[in-house]
Design a binder for these strands. Structure first.
Lengths: 253, 253
DNA sequence: CGTTTGGTTGATGTATGTCAATATTAGTGG
DNA sequence: CCACTAATATTGACATACATCAACCAAACG
């Protein structure tokens, strides 16, 4: 994986510190890797929690559900990301963190990590970066939920997953398919629409030859078409990062 | 202002560091206060930016607009908050930051602040706290946009503003009215619906005796009713913080 | 005073939700 | 290996929350 790409849009002078921080966090977590089966809830809303995690492989998410049955997948985590960094700062989580596919996670006790945060600039920068980057994604998602149509949101999501997987090195830069474990119901909970409607939109995508989403796999038939569909919701970052839209995408900014 | 309340749900051992960090950041910004008129764009999307700000008084927001006219107010900043903390870490902003009402802001050069971040644990903690807290609010807002009805979102917003103003000390804990400079169009851009629809919902709130929003002022007539309307979207934090729902709110968790 | 901006309201359209039925598959226990 | 159940996906008929379009009013303002 190319860390220069990975930490995209960081200030250049942070580069080396972020890379060192990454290694130091990994070091702190050494030997704690554990398998977690799909569906397992790692953190339960309303509880204190002692650990900060790193997703080694698999998929996880932050999700909030309420009594009347509504559920929202707030954020999806992909390999290489830290999550529950907040554990170091708040004594209570307000959302569940669940694993979406069989995964491997490592973790560090939040006191130990916070000690490192306090004494080591590289660790502080790496942690801060994670939160800043996550916030950037949330900004984009708030924009999408507030302004996008159901179709645009789904197209954005499928493009976003591809781009992030490519950045993390999990798939090739120009890959036109990738494994994606979310069920249609989970996609619905993430994009804020009904499972029935997700199904209809995915059908239309399929019939267009745009993308096929089936059996935990996304197969992109027409990347530039998909990008054009998501285009209004793509932020500057995504529009200019080749991983996101692919080389043959039309330029129409 | 009671800092113990202000930094709500922080880990207790951080308390003193956060308070010191706050003072140190203010110190770094000493003498930079400037008046900014309503409507002014402080940071323009797509540009590098040198400063991190503190909102001394007034209202500001992060907002993203696209060519076809859609606009989303992603996050609203209230007095006492730091914003554009990301400037320290990324070389490009993807959203505008605009001032919503005549405001006073102070600022620090992001290099100076980052130097302090690197060398002083208190400053690092204070900056991290700002981003973590902002992320918490974004989580709630993603949930609201994804799952809430237009009515619920508006009720949530009005309650949230009140709670945050009370936390910051700008209004009394049990205040039943507060100044709120957003126009109906801006409210619409924040909650992700049409100005026309905002108008209709505010009318129904007014006719219910729930809230009156007029001339830049919010007057709450029936706080527990409003809280009941927003209730499905209120997170644990908001439900349990008296500032948010007021003493007479019904308990129905 | 004209112009602009924000607010208000009605008539009508549509994207998306709701309800309900069926197919498919995987798992589970006998 | 066979029932049985529980997810998940699929599709159609129908309902509705919200958007769109259009008109008008009031206040602010140069």
């Amino acid at each position: 994986m190319n860390d220069v790409v990975r930490f995209a849009y960081h200030r250049p002078h942070l580069e080396s510190s972020l890379v060192r921080g990454e290694e130091k966090v990994k070091e702190l977590m050494r030997g704690t890797a554990q398998n977690v089966p799909a569906g397992k809830t790692l953190i339960r809303a309303g509880t204190d929690h002692e650990f900060v995690y790193r997703l080694v492989s698999g998929w996880a998410c932050r999700t909030r559900g309420i009594a009347d049955g509504r559920d929202q997948i707030i954020l999806v985590f992909l390999p290489g990301e830290l999550f529950a960094v907040k554990s170091m700062f708040v004594s209570c989580h307000f959302d569940d963190v669940k694993v979406l596919a069989d995964s491997v996670v490592e973790r560090a006790n939040c006191r130990n990590l916070h000690e490192a945060f306090d004494t080591d600039t590289d660790v502080a920068n790496r942690c801060m970066w994670q939160v800043v980057e996550e916030e950037r994604r949330l900004h984009g998602w708030v924009f999408g939920l507030g302004q996008g149509s159901a179709e645009e949101r789904l197209a954005l999501l499928l493009i976003d997953f591809r781009g992030r997987l490519a950045l993390s090195g999990a798939i090739a830069r120009n890959a036109m398919s990738y494994a994606m474990p979310l069920t249609q119901t989970q996609l619905a909970d993430h994009v804020g629409i009904t499972p029935v409607h997700v199904n209809r939109i995915l059908r239309s995508f399929r019939e267009n030859g745009m993308v096929t989403v089936r059996d935990g796999e996304v197969i992109i038939g027409n990347l530039s078409g998909l990008a054009r569909c998501a285009h209004p919701l793509l932020d500057a970052y995504e529009r200019t990062t080749p991983e996101y839209v692919g080389p043959q995408a039309d330029r129409d900014d």
